[in-house]
Amino acid sequence: MVDTAPAASAEERDAWLALVLAGGAIASRQMLLTLHGSAAAALSAGPAAWLAAGCDDAQRAALAQPPSGPLRHARRWLEAAGHHFIGWDHPAYPPLLRESPQPPLALFVAGEPALLAHPGVAIVGSRRPSAGGRDHAGVFAEALAQAGLAVVSGLAAGIDAAAHEAALGHAAGLTLAILGTGPDVPYPARHAALQARMAREGAVASEYPPGTPARAGQFPSRNRIVAGLTLGTLVVEAAHRSGALITARLAGEAGREVFAIPGSIHNPMARGCHRLIRDGATLVESADDVLAVLGPLAASRIAPLRGTPAAPIEVAGRDTGRPPLPANPDYQRLWQALGHDPIPMDSLVQRTGLTAAALSSMLLAMELEGRVVVRHGRYMRYP
């Protein structure tokens, strides 16, 4: 499924893919889109317009003659059920990511694209954690997922995988992986089954086209999306030189919260966390410490849709009192569309006529009120 527009033409789809496959600096391609209004118009504007927008020699050559093999591969991937493309100009592009310093031009998504707009927390750390660190990742991820936040990480070995698995293990858990490869390339390869499960029950996203193999420089770039997509980043365990510290730094640069779990002074995997705490990260000992900070931020993301002041997420459990359903007709339509059997986001979009991004925020509000339950990415009225 291609999500470049409500009724995207094959020409617009291929133009978008050509822009992505051109690679290089994102700013110049964003400028092309801004100046010309659509991917097809940007592609047909020609070499002089590409140069004026700041495209370099390699980008102009790729736009003039898009690589046919990768283009065919991307087309085939997008034709499969559950596969989506969200371009910079699409209404479903995650608002929080758009506000980050270096947002990607587009995202390829396998699974539920609305998860990208759901308030979330990044959980990152060592690829070779201690047994205690792995346990901490699972405990925090499960508790944060139970509280209604999406757990976001990079599907790497160690802490990332432990966080994803714990979120998937909770009945209402939501989890999203951001890859440093194409959306169809598991890395490490032994995570192929976990990645497939996440695409079924959550979402997997990448800025890299299908078929893109693992390359060292792509993973730090992936980390900026993990940091920019979430309200805060929790570092569970990290050595002095660690990709998790890059994610934490990028989160701080994006104005997001940074949390770190302290450890033994004898554990080399705790030294990165201690360094973060010395530099101003919030020391946390339980998921409640994270929720105390992120709860109000999550509520503030959904308050504009309700038209009411934001109410904080309950730290020690959800409020059981249910406020009246808002008079907003969109909420009324959504409530009528929900039943007592779990249904996927695609069905709610069809029944209500609302965008997945809007529905995601509304559903989070209703979930926090105890009105809606989420089971493996499907929604139902609370019994």
Score class of each variant (00 low, 15 high):
P6T: 13
E11W: 00
E12G: 06
R13Q: 14
R13N: 02
D14Y: 03
L19Y: 09
L19H: 05
V20S: 04
A27S: 14
R29S: 15
Q30E: 14
T34S: 12
T34K: 13
L35M: 08
L35P: 00
H36T: 08
A39W: 03
A42C: 02
L43E: 08
A45T: 08
A45Q: 07
G46R: 11
G46C: 10
A53Y: 03
C55F: 04
A62W: 03
P66V: 09
P67M: 13
P70V: 06
R72D: 07
A74W: 11
E79P: 00
G82K: 06
H84Y: 09
L96A: 12
L97I: 08
R98K: 12
Q102C: 07
P103C: 07
L107C: 13
L115M: 14
L115N: 00
L116N: 05
A117P: 05
H118L: 14
V121C: 14
V121N: 04
V121W: 06
I123D: 08
R127W: 04
R128W: 02
S130H: 05
G132A: 10
H136V: 14
V139G: 00
A143Y: 00
A147S: 13
L149Q: 01
G154L: 01
G154Q: 05
L155M: 15
A156R: 15
A157P: 00
A161T: 14
G169A: 15
T175I: 02
A177P: 09
I178P: 00
I178F: 02
L179D: 11
G180I: 10
A192G: 03
A193S: 11
L194T: 07
M198S: 02
S206Y: 13
A214T: 05
A216V: 15
S221Y: 11
R222H: 12
I225W: 03
V226M: 12
L229C: 08
L234C: 02
V235L: 08
V235F: 07
V236R: 03
E237Y: 03
A239Y: 00
A239Q: 09
H240T: 12
G243I: 07
A248I: 10
A248V: 07
A254W: 10
E257W: 13
I261C: 07
P262Y: 10
G263K: 07
G263R: 03
M269G: 00
H274S: 07
R275L: 08
I277A: 08
D279M: 10
D279Q: 15
G280N: 03
A281H: 12
S286E: 14
D288E: 15
V290R: 06
L294E: 09
P296M: 06
S300W: 05
A303V: 13
L305D: 08
A310Q: 11
P312D: 06
I313D: 14
I313G: 02
A316S: 03
G317D: 12
N328R: 12
P329Y: 02
D330G: 01
L334D: 05
L334V: 11
L338A: 04
L338V: 04
L338D: 04
I343D: 01
I343H: 00
P344L: 01
D346M: 01
L348V: 02
Q350H: 08
T352N: 02
L354V: 08
A358I: 12
A358H: 14
S360I: 05
S360G: 07
L363C: 05
A365D: 15
M366V: 00
M366Y: 00
G370V: 14
R371Y: 06
V374A: 02
H376N: 09
Y382G: 01
P383M: 02
